[in-house]
Computed example of a mutant assay.
Amino acid sequence: MKSKKSIIQSAVSTLELEAAAILNVAKNINDDFEKVVSTILQCNGRVIVTGIGKSAIIAQKIVATFNSTGTPAIFMHAADAIHGDLGMIQINDVIICLSKSGNTPEIKVLIPLLKIAGNVLIGMVGETNSFLAQQSNLMLDTSVEKEACPHNLAPTTSTTAQLAMGDALAICLLECREFNERDFAKYHPGGSLGKKLYLKAGDLALANEKPSIKLSASVKEVLIEISKNRLGAVAVVDNKNEILGVITDGDIRRMLENNTDIAHLKAENIMGKNPKSIQHDALAVDALDIIKKNNITQLLVLKQNTYFGIIHLHDLLNEGIV
């Protein structure tokens, strides 16, 4: 078994080789790359991405990235294509074929079939003199000097180069389409990522009670309102439902510490003035920023100038925003 030192050296060496491979691929970005981007932008169909072996796995990842960033794409396995899956290709589709060698038997069988309908064929290939490179309308050069595998056999740096080239394509297409956060949210509505992009402060506030009292409320009324709604705070409002202040659990504790006679105290004597707030249509993730920066656990939500509700830090935790 290898020593600890040699294991670490092997890992570092692998990462350095793959990093170098990506930098070398960057040198291959040329006019063909720009033409590939323009071709896909002008395409009225989908991008069909195909490959075999490890290249097929990378092709699936590229498809996933395309779809999530506004470029409609479909994966087609090169081996399955000649057994019926060619039927998924429509006349307006653009095809990207991934292959390190560009000369495998499956690729040589597939390429003529892909060209029958006249679709634009883009080769992402590691051998610029290969069959795939010669038959492609446009070529993306992902050649590498050697694999990270010590036997120069297992696809490692070559698949990393393909993956990086796919990401470069996706990001260029995203920027050309001016694909923004709102667009991204449409394709990622689930999970914490989607919630950060579309969940509003008002959505969270609506799920809570809306505790409020007047300036003249007694300490007892304040305590009842805070306890009843279990948000640890109550808004102090005027007759127009505009915010005058807020009373939190902490304010109650400080009041008890500083006063022996509380019978005469009213909400206006206890409340904190100029409380932190957020508009109901602001993103929940922005509410989290305010809570963190001010080291608070509750945040008032407004609709223009009127009281809309309260967000608690636990609401953000429960939604996975934190």
Rank of each mutant, 00 (worst) to 15 (best):
M1K: 07
K2F: 15
S3G: 03
Q9L: 11
S13M: 08
L17C: 14
A19Y: 12
I22V: 09
L23W: 10
A26Q: 12
N30C: 00
D32N: 14
D32K: 10
K35F: 02
S38T: 13
G45N: 01
I52W: 07
K54I: 06
K54D: 08
I57D: 11
I57L: 15
Q60V: 12
V63C: 14
V63H: 09
T69W: 07
I74N: 11
F75K: 06
M76I: 12
A78N: 06
G84E: 04
D93I: 06
V94G: 00
I95N: 03
I107W: 08
I107E: 05
K108A: 11
K108G: 08
V109E: 15
L113H: 12
L114A: 06
L114R: 07
N119I: 03
N119E: 00
G123P: 15
V125K: 00
G126P: 05
T128G: 11
F131P: 15
L132H: 10
S136N: 09
S136K: 05
T142H: 00
S143Q: 10
V144R: 05
K146V: 09
A148V: 08
H151F: 13
T160L: 06
A161D: 01
L169S: 00
A170F: 03
C172R: 09
C172K: 07
E175L: 13
C176M: 13
C176N: 12
E178H: 15
F179E: 00
N180H: 09
A185D: 04
Y187F: 14
H188C: 05
P189S: 04
S192A: 11
K195I: 07
L199I: 10
K200D: 06
A201R: 00
G202H: 12
G202M: 11
A205E: 00
S212C: 09
I213K: 08
I213P: 10
K214R: 14
A217R: 08
V219T: 01
E221S: 12
E225D: 06
R230K: 15
R230H: 11
L231A: 01
G232A: 00
D238G: 04
N239M: 09
L244V: 10
V246S: 07
I247N: 01
G250A: 06
G250R: 04
R254Q: 11
M255V: 02
L256Y: 14
N258Y: 05
D261T: 10
A263T: 14
A263C: 13
K266I: 09
E268I: 12
K273Y: 01
K276C: 14
S277N: 14
H280Q: 13
L283T: 10
D289E: 14
I290T: 06
N294E: 08
N295Y: 12
Q298K: 01
L300F: 05
V301T: 01
K303I: 11
N305W: 08
N305L: 13
Y307M: 03
F308K: 07
G309F: 06
G309K: 07
L316Y: 01
E319Y: 08
